[in-house]
Design a protein around this nucleic acid. Sequence first.
DNA 1: GATGAATGAGTTTTCATTCAT
DNA 2: GATGAATGAAAACTCATTCAT
Lengths: 207, 207, 207, 207
Amino acid sequence: MQGEKLSRREREKLRQRREMLAAALELFSEKGYHNVSMHEIAERAEFAIGTLYKFFKNKEDLYKTLIIAQADRFHEALTKATKEANDEIEKLRIYVKTKSTIFMDNVSIIRLYFAETRGASFNIKAGLDSEIRERYSQFLHTLASVFESGMKRKRFQKIAEPYHLAVALDSLCNAFLFLWLEAPERHLYPEDPDVILNILFKGLVDP
Amino acid sequence: MQGEKLSRREREKLRQRREMLAAALELFSEKGYHNVSMHEIAERAEFAIGTLYKFFKNKEDLYKTLIIAQADRFHEALTKATKEANDEIEKLRIYVKTKSTIFMDNVSIIRLYFAETRGASFNIKAGLDSEIRERYSQFLHTLASVFESGMKRKRFQKIAEPYHLAVALDSLCNAFLFLWLEAPERHLYPEDPDVILNILFKGLVDP
Amino acid sequence: MQGEKLSRREREKLRQRREMLAAALELFSEKGYHNVSMHEIAERAEFAIGTLYKFFKNKEDLYKTLIIAQADRFHEALTKATKEANDEIEKLRIYVKTKSTIFMDNVSIIRLYFAETRGASFNIKAGLDSEIRERYSQFLHTLASVFESGMKRKRFQKIAEPYHLAVALDSLCNAFLFLWLEAPERHLYPEDPDVILNILFKGLVDP
Amino acid sequence: MQGEKLSRREREKLRQRREMLAAALELFSEKGYHNVSMHEIAERAEFAIGTLYKFFKNKEDLYKTLIIAQADRFHEALTKATKEANDEIEKLRIYVKTKSTIFMDNVSIIRLYFAETRGASFNIKAGLDSEIRERYSQFLHTLASVFESGMKRKRFQKIAEPYHLAVALDSLCNAFLFLWLEAPERHLYPEDPDVILNILFKGLVDP
DNA sequence: GATGAATGAGTTTTCATTCAT
DNA sequence: GATGAATGAAAACTCATTCAT
């Protein structure tokens, strides 16, 4: 993408930044925003506290950068997932599978992410909320377009607005993934995306 | 239930307690647990800080009391809602309507509640989590029994486990309610519970 | 002493006061001045906090009253002890014995007392120090008079000022009693007052 | 002992630490542990409160450090004093003189020290007590050995156990020094160690 | 006269942030 | 450019004391 070559200096900087973000991610997801100190992060990243502040203007900035980076990573992967197949039904199946995998592999970040999108954010003033939600909404539109094209191609019935269906599918995924998160032994979700899709695809009430 | 009359003293105490909880609720939901100080709560409630500590032994106790009281209130109302009609479909419709009403009328509490049940509830030391989730799970079983009896009575198809259907319905409600919360002007949800129920009732894919 | 009859009202008051002082003594000697709250004292004495303040104008006053009352009790008993025999040597022996008994029977008060007379009093501003020390000094004069009369009657050599000898004897008693207090099993003081008196009576160095 | 040169940084640190301890010592001995706040100490030492906490992890740590450092200093000086002469009587004379000098030069510390070794040392949670007393007891054994060797060399009569004589001598010193402390104008102790030694050396009662 | 609810000043401690070296 | 010592605002919580009932 970025065709320009980076100088050694710049590459070094990027590496440092990544290390700081990695340390911060570990700590925030282990203990939560308010229970992690900047000193702790600096120490874990093996930088001086002053250096940390050279890269991020304050704790909130660091946190925001982190969350947005992760959210982008997830949305990108999910967007890509909806491009994988030609058939819309298959697209949705891949989407659910991909989402499950991301979720399982990033449990701690996911918790942070939901704290931001759902919970009473500690952060209202900072506007992290809106930025994250904006991106989330953009992603939902991508997902909605799958439903839309499916309807055009008569693969799906018009039971609801495409955007609403996107909302519905995503919320079902989250709900079942959380179910699994809280009691992995009882709810063996991730192995079968069809549990979720069935609910959406089949009618509960006889037509 | 409580047949005994309360003395004036006791009634006064209860009123004070309610005022403190109300002030705390406002502040917590505005700014989040960690960004609210006990002094702030005391001031908003128009009591001295010492008085606040007479009623709640510490900040966590106050928070926990608040969350659990509200959760119980909601679960009770929702449980009652599922008893209102005889027909299962009608039960679900009433459920969705009731949930919407509660949601709209208690936006700030709802935010707090979700921070606890969904978000990285690092907010507060362990314990509240599990207590709240336990109650939530109990409620889901109540909701599941509606699906179960509906299946027995052939009103519903067996497209998924009753408990999973309960999870699905509740998560759909939450998702659409949040949608409305974030942009009330665009998504006119609450007027029509059938948007949600349609998704569940009708099949997206032709059988 | 006080010939005047006390009314029932007054007797009742005195009883209450005594109960408060008793509760305070227990608590102060268990946990120390700063680790006891007025509420605790009121509760232990089974009075309301307001009633406690009717009797003592503040915490310091209560403490002061308590310490002085106890000191007086001890000084009185010790003064009486020096009157018991005719012979000065015997007087001293009785003094040491009495002091031991008092010490053993009132260990916790003694600790408080020494905190006041020796330690860095928390209380310098209040002048408890000086009041207690004044009484202590008065008592030492009483003890000194035993040495003085013993010298006049040629029972004692004039190895030092009578007052200095009083200081010496009392400090020896305290030292050995503390020795016992800290390790009762190793230093079997109280059984033998002569250990102390020997040191005073016999010369360490050959004349 | 410490052959290594300290860097400027380290020397600076040590100086700061000393200043903090000096400020703390002044305040503690003026007003007692519980009547001194960490803010007060920081202010007197002319550091920010946070800096104080960089050096001592909490108030108790600061206090403990202070007391033990001083106690060690005194015990060292006194132990050295008992090695100065060959003759035991002379050793004791030097001991008394040294103790007087220390006492006079360190009145405020001495007050604190006695609060800890004698007074109801409720001041501070357990632990300091025993550590200080242990060291004191060790020192008494050193002093006792002077008496013991004096007895072996027939310089002293066996009027009591060496350890008891050590206790006696030390308590006599303390008693007379406190006498002077309270009323320097009346009791001109420090000029003449023989007042104390006479009491020990000469018999009060004719043999 | 007794009561105990209410008060709020004061305490210890933490931690984000700055800036001289 | 990196460092980390120094800062001090702010938080949770306690408790002596008052005063309306």
